[in-house]
Design a protein around this nucleic acid. Structure first.
Lengths: 339, 339
DNA sequence: GTTTAGCACTCAATATTCTCGACTGCTAAT
DNA sequence: ATTAGCAGTCGAGAATATTGAGTGCTAAAC
């Protein structure tokens, strides 16, 4: 069905469309890529590729545009992902080596770098506490009526919160708190901060409920990740020709503004795999004209954050995925080294 | 020059334009607001108002649109700022009373609430550490090679950072750190974390430079506010008719994406005053078609954060400013109560 | 069987013209 | 000072024409 030349032509059409954003004609293909065959031959192949669902026409006498299926074949089989230059590799190394204070910070730096190199809009979410184990819990008195509660997990994630009281708290009380919380929770999954913990603490510590209540409440809040999306280079997308359509521009802003959609996508997929969602492969209406490429930064089975690119379907997949692959590798190297 | 009726008509024109987004004709004014005079009379007044620079025409035979000068007179002299309903007051109270864990959190809640009620895009920056005094500094050991450094200021602001080491640190060392840092810095302005502190610490503590160096570095970083902008309801703006212009939409995204512009504006102005920037009163090109209204949440002369609204020049100033005034009042009440 | 030249046909995009009506500004009467 | 009345302006939208970049198909060539 799809002989070598047709595959080659399909790749050329997608390449060309990614470059020009205009429907691709048979003449262009001959001129730029296939000097030895005639445009009529290309037309025949195009007609075939269209019949098979890889190409579409915007109207009867227009050039061809890749369909979602066309892009899919293109990214799955026709591309090599080594489209990254020495300068880019150097730049990424430099950025990521500048060692960040925390995993969150590192994820942000990677997100920014990815946007800088690809010129697309990037988004990320930080690590999720769920699934991690508690290494240490610490309460620290700040003044007489304020406490900081800190949780450190086995992957080195640190989460802290401020707890305020209506009455004074003593150092002794704090020490007891530290003792009982660690006693109960050290080595346990973070989800153990729940109703049973509450019961245990109330039973063991006879302090005023005025002190215990806010502590429990805040600690529970702490592990409910609020999942803040970090966004970089939204304006870069607006330079692209597809954003001349008000409709698209609006959808785009909508997606980024109602964070749930992006969170959903960033939260699916597995460790280290690069996930690609092309156009209406997403079931969200607003996303039908966009593609999203994501990968997870992780250690073992524990997520340390997900980074994604969102751009038009006509995205430079080769560049995007090549750079992502490299960043993904670097992030994991980076982490292994620290262990 | 500007008799009572002309002022009244100017107000009506601005009101009408804010409502309809269409150039306002003399006939509309007669029909909706001035049933007792003829359209010719209104036209005469309009011609006068235009000559004085308060109104503009989009073309020779169009209705009138307010100029920046017109909006300025409108907000300064023609509006009353009590355009807030009981339901809205109740809603705001509810939101703000749900007491936040930190000043940052409170600012965010207020920002979100402001966007919800006004249906405009809102932005805010958190409190700045500069100008505040240090109440307490605390280092806490997390594991053997990780420290958390915490600064509490006199306004109750808490800033913390993670510091990692290549060698083990002992509890005794941490206690000494706490002693010397507090000894030197308690009660001092936060800017005292500088080169002279560095010198002092190096002199007093004889620890390995491998321990002191990262601590000093991180503490210095900590007080350099990174000034993160919090953004709410960007998509709401995109529903407005002015955003049909691609040009405007692009400028808008640009402004929000290159944070410096907004930061600049949010950082000017004084405590509690509501600041209004109409169109090209900002000298940024991208802002020429937008207005920004901001206010600072503060205690004494210390900023606790700035909240702003950005929308088209044709913004509902009455509503925006009324709601802002109320939120501003509530925030300060809130704070006073806690003291 | 595959490729190709050649040509009729399609249709979006752009330019051109026309019409409509929502405005104003002005004049002269009130 | 106000107003009725009317001529004049100009944008917006509809209607029409023009252009040219494409295709698909046929029949000949390889």
């Amino acid at each position: 069905m799809l002989d070598e030349r047709k595959r080659k032509i399909l790749k050329e059409i997608v390449d060309e469309y990614i470059d020009s954003a205009e429907p691709v004609s048979s003449a262009i293909i001959v001129e730029k890529y296939e000097n030895n065959i005639s445009s009529a031959t290309v037309r025949n192949d195009m007609a075939e590729l269209e019949k098979l669902g890889y190409l579409e026409k915007t109207h009867t006498s227009s050039g061809r545009v890749p369909s979602a299926k066309g892009y899919r074949l293109y990214v799955d089989e026709l591309l090599k992902y080594d489209n990254i230059s020495l300068e880019e590799i150097k730049y990424i190394q430099e950025k990521l080596e500048n060692k960040a204070d925390s995993i969150e910070e590192l994820t942000k730096i990677a997100t920014t770098t990815l946007s800088e190199i690809t010129h697309y809009t990037t988004v990320s979410v930080g690590p999720k506490t769920s699934g991690q184990n508690i290494e240490e819990i610490k309460f620290v008195l700040l003044g007489a009526r304020m406490l900081m509660g800190i949780i450190v997990t086995d992957t080195g994630l640190v989460r802290e919160t401020i707890i305020k009281f209506d009455e004074d708290v003593t150092e002794e009380q704090v020490e007891t708190l530290n003792y009982y919380f660690n006693n109960k929770l050290q080595g346990e999954p973070i989800e153990k901060i729940d109703a049973s913990l509450e019961e245990y603490i109330f039973r063991e510590l006879k302090y005023s409920i005025k002190i215990i209540r806010p502590i429990i409440d805040q600690m529970k809040k702490l592990i409910q990740d609020e999942e803040k999306i970090y966004l970089e280079g939204a304006n870069k997308s607006f330079e692209l020709p597809e954003f001349k359509s008000l409709e698209l521009a609006k959808n785009f802003v909508n997606i980024l503004d109602t964070k749930e959609v992006m969170l959903d996508i960033l939260n699916t997929g597995f460790a280290e795999d690069i996930q690609i969602y092309i156009g209406d492969e997403n079931d969200n209406e607003d996303l039908k004209d966009f593609s999203i490429v994501t990968f997870k930064h992780s250690v073992g089975d524990k997520d340390l954050g997900t980074i994604g690119i969102i751009g038009p379907k006509r995205m430079n997949y080769s560049k995007v995925i090549s750079v992502m692959k490299y960043i993904s590798k670097k992030l994991n190297d980076n982490f292994d080294k620290k262990e």
